[in-house]
């Protein structure tokens, strides 16, 4: 079923079609969220918030852009808002680290740590998280969603050339920050 048909059915009160929408897009929304927050529980919170917003705003969806573009925009905004809200919580988490308390970046929660080492994973995540919002968004959509530049441009509402620049700068920034890891 096409997205437009799904939306029409949902707006006509056939709310069971919202479940179909969730099944179709939840994996992609979760993947984007993981790219921003790196923690399963936080990503799940974001997915929940995104679909609630979608449900509440569906009547206002005009169809100027495709539904998936609209959905990705909401996902990016919710993810960035989540990060801003939790900046204080991250500071607490850092303090907990100093006191040797368990934190959400422990090995049990993220398989990446087992593959490349806890410390390396932490440094790489920190480098990705330090990118400016637009660079980070372009990076996440490109690397986590394997999204073409054209689609990223639609989501960010910039030109394809701008997306290419964002990705180049993100790549250079990450290489600079991570070069000391090379050879370890």
């Amino acid at each position: 079923m096409q997205d437009s048909e799904l939306i029409e059915n949902i707006l006509n009160g056939k709310t069971q079609y919202f479940e179909v929408l969730i099944d179709k897009y939840q994996p992609a929304v979760f993947l984007t969220a993981i790219g921003f927050v790196h923690v399963k529980e936080d990503a799940e919170d974001i997915v929940q918030e995104v679909f609630v917003k979608v449900y509440q705003s569906l009547a206002g969806f005009k169809g100027d852009a495709s539904f998936s573009t609209w959905l990705y925009r909401i996902t990016v905004n919710v993810s960035l808002n989540h990060l801003n809200r939790n900046k204080f919580r991250l500071l607490i988490g850092f303090t907990d680290n100093l006191l040797h308390h368990e934190n959400r970046y422990s090995e049990d929660l993220n398989p990446a740590d087992e593959i490349i080492g806890n410390e390396n994973a932490r440094i790489i995540r920190k480098a990705i998280d330090s990118l400016p919002d637009k660079q980070r968004t372009a990076f996440v959509l490109s690397k986590y969603e394997d999204m073409p530049q054209k689609q990223i441009a639609e989501i960010l509402q910039v030109t394809e050339g701008a997306v290419e620049q964002l990705l180049q700068r993100a790549k250079q920034s990450l290489q600079k920050k991570l070069k000391h890891l090379v050879g370890k």
């Binding site: 919202f18 479940e19 993947l31 399963k40 799940e44 997915v47 593959i115 790489i124 890891l181």
Partner: peptide
């Protein structure tokens, strides 16, 4: 390579099976 390994590992994280129920 390091970046790709981290990203590939994170892409394999699976959400809780009850997530859809929570959303609904």
């Amino acid at each position: 390579e390091l970046l790709d390994k981290l990203i590939d590992a994170e892409k394999n994280i699976v959400p809780d099976s009850e997530l859809k129920k929570k959303i609904l």
